[in-house]
Design a protein around this nucleic acid. Structure first.
Lengths: 349, 349
DNA sequence: GTGAAAGCGCTAACAA
DNA sequence: TTGTTAGCGCTTTCAC
């Protein structure tokens, strides 16, 4: 008695797992048949299939999918995980879009995870996700290089927006920053402040480096403020610092910071771009929506996402991409209203 | 011979899976010891652990994690999947934020997936993700109710922004829409157009319904335009339709559409809010950033996300939440510049 | 198409 | 702490 009640009934102390065997008993067939009915619907009669389904339903059976055996092929989830540092940041939206399209086109599914700029969380996510995905896309990872290489040895991995030797990487180049520097020189804003993003961010270092490299040739003097949080609030905080010692030009780590900076500076009664020319990074949708519209350095984000996926898929199929240098995609300067096109008479230098 | 070369060598026809047994042989220990070394690092001597790790490395062993057995407790990924209809839509960002915080606080990991407003893709994602997560959060799902119930029977599931009988749901109520209608009445804009979003969207129907319900009591005449895509382009398309037969007030399915609408209308030489009062839905960050700033109906998105997670976790722990009516969270009208606070002299009615 | 039985790779229980 | 043994739940033989 009490044999066909739902599991976890008052009678039994703890819920027992319902297995194929229970279903088989209820359906009056062999366990292997139940297995077939679920895993290879084609290889049982429609009648049997139905009978098994009914029995399964009645007994409350739930397949322990993770125990599935068989050619690795069929067990694979055809799933790729994309880790981003901050979903809130519109930059990642474009990367996601590019990746998603490529992934979907290949018949895979994209799973997203937000590391919240935290090394610890990132590890946690990887640990939990590693088993169930076929490949990893690490965007703006905050983990140390060695950690990334370790992961890359376990699963096909491609790194985005960062360069890690030994792992395939896709990043934007520095031509955009050079163009911005040239613009500053052209309009006579020779002192430029760089609003730094997270110290742990590889991109942050690279952007600052590119600016520093461009400076001497253009007679620019550059200095760094920060680091600040890479969001609007961070930009406002940066503005507070900047106001104590102004420069006629500002390059921000990203658009969000530039927007926050701009907003705070405007609120302080200054004019953009007359009093300060501001350039963001990422050329996100927001750049065109704020007032004044933000001049920004655009990275081909969609392409970065798509390219990364293609490399990942190649890797997964046993390819051996070059891992000693990153795949570089060109960035460009998109001029809008937050920078003047020519020197402004009477503007600070 | 050829016993310790990497798998897939030229010699062997196909790559053989490297198991614990191979590692055990190489390390000169029992298989169970290898297992322990990987699964319970604490229960082997440091020396053995090291020996095993070396051997594993040498043989090229990669644990078949999905085969892990043991107390279901330890095998669980402690992962929750959140499906959203369109990551690009800022609405979901807040829901994600709320869910993420709650999930993280509970020691779980949140995985995101974008259904791209597609029923088919949504099913695909669910199929692939079902095995490896502990719970499901379905946001603005495009699947039929029956499909959702089917999923809900297999995994703890909570539905957001939609009501499905038999499954716990968390949605915003309709007070915000009523307030908007009241505002329209107050400022004498008696004819209002509703810019419809996706037909398959439950929220779309509810919003329209709420407006229709509020209309008679306030002597408003309402009509529906659309459906349109729930994004900026959709709003622009809506504007094209609207321009052929104008109304002094417009309520859009969401902020993105309202922004697109507003932009197109402005471009056509009309004034907002003088010629047309526009109200969006969601009160996203963008609402405050565009010009004129958009009046919008705010849903407590962060709270919706967090609440849904709490319900899901309760479900997972064997709770039996009420599933015959949704959990309602209050929406409110946030007035900005796209609606006048009082009647505008000479404005259309 | 179906059943019996022999695994899959990993783990828990039990001694030693 | 370690090895032995007996499984886990599902799948794949291989007969029938």
């Amino acid at each position: 008695m009490n044999v066909d009640g739902p599991p976890g009934e008052a009678g039994s102390a703890r819920a027992q797992r319902v297995t194929i065997y229970d279903v088989a008993r209820a359906a009056g067939v062999a366990p292997s048949t139940v297995s077939r009915a679920f895993a290879r619907p084609g290889r049982v009669t429609a009648a049997t299939a139905e009978k098994v389904r009914q029995a399964a339903d009645q007994v409350g059976y739930r397949p322990e999918m993770t125990q599935r055996r068989g050619p690795a092929e069929r067990r694979r989830a055809r799933t790729i995980a994309l880790l981003v540092a901050d979903i809130t940041n519109p930059v990642f939206l474009d990367i996601i879009r590019g990746a998603e399209e490529a992934v979907t086109a290949a018949g895979y599914t994209l799973l997203l995870a937000n590391t919240q700029e935290s090394d610890r969380l990132e590890r946690g996510i990887l640990e939990r996700v590693l088993d169930s995905v076929d490949g990893l896309l690490l965007t703006s990872s905050r983990m140390p290089d060695a950690g990334i290489r370790l992961i890359a040895r376990q699963k096909p991995t491609v790194v985005l927006n960062r360069f890690v030797t030994g792992v395939p990487c896709v990043v934007g180049d520095s031509t955009g920053i050079r163009r911005a520097a040239e613009l500053f020189a052209t309009i006579g804003r020779t002192r430029v402040a760089y609003l730094a993003g997270p110290e742990a961010s590889w991109a942050n270092g690279v952007r600052w480096r590119a600016l520093v490299d461009a400076a001497p040739g253009l007679a620019l003097s550059v200095r760094q403020l920060g680091p600040f949080a890479p969001d609007i609030a961070g930009g406002e905080a940066a503005a507070a610092t900047w106001l104590t010692r102004r420069t006629p030009a500002v390059l921000a780590y990203n658009d969000l910071m530039a927007i926050g900076f701009q907003r705070a500076v405007l609120a302080a009664g200054l004019r953009v771009p007359e009093d300060v020319a501001v350039v963001g990074f990422d050329d996100s949708v927001l750049a065109g929506l704020v007032v004044p519209a933000l001049t920004s350095i655009g990275t081909p984000l969609v392409r970065i996402g798509a390219t990364a996926v293609h490399h990942l898929l190649a890797l997964e199929r046993g390819g051996h991409p070059a891992v000693d240098r990153p795949v570089l995609l060109p960035t460009r300067l998109v001029e809008r209203s937050s920078t003047p096109a020519r020197p402004v008479p009477g503007a600070p230098r």
